[in-house]
Amino acid sequence: MLVLGIETSCDETAAALVDSGATILSNIIATQFDLLKKYGGVVPEIAARRHTESIGYVVKEALDKANKTLNDVDAVAVSSKQGLIGCLMVGVAAAKSISYARGIPLIGIHHVEGHIFANRLSHPELPFPHVCLTVSGGHTMILYVNDNSTYELMGTTLDDAAGECFDKIAKFLDISYANRNTGGGRVIDELSHQGNLKAFNFPRPMIRSKNLDFSFSGLKTSVINMFKDKIVRGESLPLPDIAASFQEAIVDVLVTKTLHAAEEKEVRAISVTGGVSANSRLRAVFQETCERKGIAVFFPPLSLCTDNAAMVAAAGYAHLKRGEFSGLRLDVFPNAPIGV
């Protein structure tokens, strides 16, 4: 069963071919990084225009790379929930057209469910039930993953997503986008290697709250205020120390809360997905803490951390197997909830 996945929820135009939800035959991602860097972030209208320009080429490349044609494709899956509305629409319009023209089933996928499948795709041994932390520029969620089809939302961010916080601080410190060739999260990760993570004691918002929700806007303000204070006082600005201490605060909150969730549900496995799961410090602290507690922790390979269509195709296959399709009336839901 060959599923074509399409993903256009934010600033990556992606298409992939995945066989039986397990084998990636191709995974094409056209990033808009170079286009968007002069704006310091994602501009929805500009991103949506680029999706329309790229989508056909990206789908064709996914087929060519896998040495397949549309004749070989059994179904098409597309991110239709959660993302920028104008961007989601392009992927959904493309997927519907392919589904209609080829007479193959169409499956709308929740983008976050896609991220959950990024780990299941790379680690078939991932046990159920487990707790999944999905953390990226768009969301920060702790989900209890029961089996193939049910999710329970245990906690989410009340304001900024963790990845958004990384990007905004990098932008504020003027160390990303405009003058570098990678996103804010990666710049802070790299810079932190040369910094002292205990140099500044930034707040760990909601780390002791009784629930599993997150809040990162206060941490962002704290870093910005400290930075401005130092400028006013004419003190030096040790960027690597700021980056490392800031990153440590985020990592601390993410790991602590995810472990609370695992303990609450008494599960022995944690899955971490989304763009921020590429962060080297987050990986290290999770590995170390989970090892101590006898919990297995899983990360996707770096190629499946950020937005991609292979994860969408894999999630699509799971729905297909259960006979769950979307009709041609499939609509987009930019703020669709996941789980309950």
Binding site: R49, T52, I55, M89, V90, A93, S97, I98, A101, R102
Partner: peptide, 15 residues
């Protein structure tokens, strides 16, 4: 127009 053009081009490509 973005939705219309995407549908037009992908219908043509797929068929």
């Amino acid at each position: 127009i973005r939705v219309g053009v995407t549908v037009g081009k992908m219908l043509a490509y797929a068929s």
